[in-house]
Amino acid sequence: MPPSASSSSNGTSTASLALPSGYRRLEALQKDQQWLLKQTKRKRTELNNFVEQMRSLATEIFKQGNPHLKNLTALDQEIHNLFEEIFRTRKFGKKAKKTIEGIYRSLQLGGIISPKFNNEAGETELDELFENQEPEPDFNFHSEEKSEPDTEERQEFSQQQVGKTKESRKIRQTFLRLAEIFHPDKVMDSENHLRHTEIMKEINRAYQDGDLARLLEIEQQHQVGESIANETEDEITRSCNRLEQENQFLKNQYENLKRELRLVKKTPEGVMVSDYRKAKREGIDPIAEMMEQMESELQGIEELRDFIRDFRDKKITIKEFITGPTAWRQTPEEMMEDVLEEMFGDLLEVIRF
């Protein structure tokens, strides 16, 4: 039975109202996507710049600090050699020898020189130190039982995996769509071939990085999206659904970038960059100050080396040796350890990075 005039009129009226509504929804989703693309690009740039500054700062500190580290390594080995020579060539009473061995061991345990327990006394006391430690209590009462995640954890994990699968599928679909358009083999003239080759490099890089935002940026930059001028209601609905899905993935990518940046800033290298930026704003050159501090403290290690050498050469007595260098007697042991930790801690973290 053919539709009545009134029903036909109502259908036309409904369609005419639906189309503008669909267009408004589509326009809103497009604006959301533009904002998400802009924010994602900004956060990605911020993260890349921060990581790059971490690397450049580490490189500069290592470059300037490497000569000091070489001097420190040479001094460290020289001090070990001096003690070995003292134990080998000097004759001491049992009590005096034990005291000198204790000084040598304390320098190692305190981090003043590198650990190298070659003598039996050092190894024996170190073994006793660990033997006297009580075993740590085991709070894992179900260590032998196979722990199973509860239902909520399994559901959450399952949802995360499904989300990742959908996002990966969307990234691949976008990549294939762009590759179909910009593959260099699709064009014949040399000018467009070169242009498509460069665009395809960007597409491949974004795909390998799993960067949906960058793929969509490329798509919009070269205006290869679908035209909506003559789309039907169903086509507009499909476009809206596609944009909603893309926007959700973009939100996830944006949140992941923010989380990654927060985590990077909390690393030792990230904290160093933040401190470096703060110092520069205050007109301070933190690297120059670090090098000056290292030079000053290396002089202290050199004085220790000279003091031990004088003892080897019998220029000072055992009593004077046990008392320690004059400058070190004026500095509490705790302060010296803090200074050394401050001096080399950041640099060693940077070198590991």
Rank of each mutant, 00 (worst) to 15 (best):
E123C: 03
P3C: 08
K315H: 14
T267I: 03
R172W: 10
A279W: 04
P268N: 02
I351M: 15
G102N: 08
E85M: 11
N118M: 08
K265C: 03
G300T: 02
Y104M: 01
A74P: 00
G93S: 07
E84L: 12
S7D: 09
E289S: 05
M335S: 15
N140L: 15
E202P: 00
V264F: 01
R195D: 12
I287N: 09
L298H: 06
T174Q: 15
L340S: 14
G283Q: 10
Q208M: 07
S147R: 15
E202A: 12
K97L: 07
Q330P: 02
H222E: 03
I199W: 05
G324Q: 04
L250K: 04
E320V: 00
P137S: 05
T89R: 10
F130Q: 02
K251H: 07
R24S: 11
E255R: 05
F175T: 03
I113N: 09
I284W: 10
E191Q: 11
E342R: 07
S143W: 13
E153M: 06
Q160S: 10
G102H: 01
K63M: 07
N140W: 07
E282I: 01
M272I: 07
D338R: 07
S16A: 09
A206K: 10
I287F: 00
R105A: 01
F307Q: 06
N132Q: 13
R44W: 13
Q221H: 12
L216V: 02
V187K: 09
V264A: 03
K166Y: 11
R90A: 13
N119L: 09
E303W: 00
I112Q: 12
P149M: 02
A179S: 15
P325N: 02
A288N: 14
R277P: 00
N132K: 12
E134P: 00
I79Q: 09
N252C: 00
D338P: 12
N66L: 12
W35F: 10
I61F: 13
K201H: 04
E156A: 06
L243Y: 01
R281T: 13
E145T: 08
P325W: 00
L250I: 03
Q39K: 10
N71S: 10
P135Q: 07
E244Q: 14
M54C: 08
T40H: 10
S168K: 15
R312D: 08
Y207G: 07
K166S: 14
Q253A: 11
I308H: 10
S106C: 04
K266H: 02
E295R: 03
E289Q: 12
Y23T: 05
K186N: 15
W35Y: 09
E136L: 15
P115H: 08
K95I: 14
Q77E: 12
G210A: 03
A213T: 02
T151H: 12
Q53K: 07
Q155I: 14
F83M: 03
I112R: 09
I100V: 04
L17C: 05
F92S: 10
R262S: 09
V224R: 13
E302D: 08
M272Y: 11
D138C: 03
